[in-house]
């Protein structure tokens, strides 16, 4: 059970984020929603990489009594998460820049009022 708590947290984070994106009317809150979903996905990847009794894959930090292949965890999920965080920052910066420009044009951040594009 205790090992499943991170997965439950992942689901909760993604749900909260989706809720914010779908139902919130403020652009900044939508951006926050996307960031929360991203944290959820990152947490998921990190959790996948967890092995009970494993050691962080830093060669020089390896404690004396541990042996090399067995207890060093494979660093791929961590590498994926780092990449994903970097990409997330780029997306976040772009979205906030767009939000600033939208505010300049429309003088509001309320998505229900930003509707020059009609069907």
């Amino acid at each position: 059970m205790i090992y499943n708590i991170p997965y439950i947290a992942v689901i909760i984070l993604i749900m909260v984020g989706l809720y914010a994106v779908v139902f919130k009317r403020n652009i900044i809150k939508m951006v926050m929603g996307i960031t929360i979903i991203e944290s959820g996905v990152n947490l998921f990847l990190v959790t996948l990489g967890y092995r009970a009794g494993g050691v962080a894959p830093i060669f020089t930090n390896l404690p004396e009594e541990r042996q090399i292949p067995g207890q060093l965890v494979l660093p791929i999920p961590q590498a994926l998460t780092l990449t994903s965080i970097v990409i997330g920052v780029a997306v976040l910066a772009l979205m906030l820049a767009l939000a600033i420009q939208i505010y300049r044009q429309y003088k509001t951040l309320d998505v229900t009022k930003i509707r020059r594009l009609k069907e």
Partner: peptide
Amino acid sequence: RGESLEAAF
């Protein structure tokens, strides 16, 4: 153009 920003967002 506000429309472009809206589309991009």
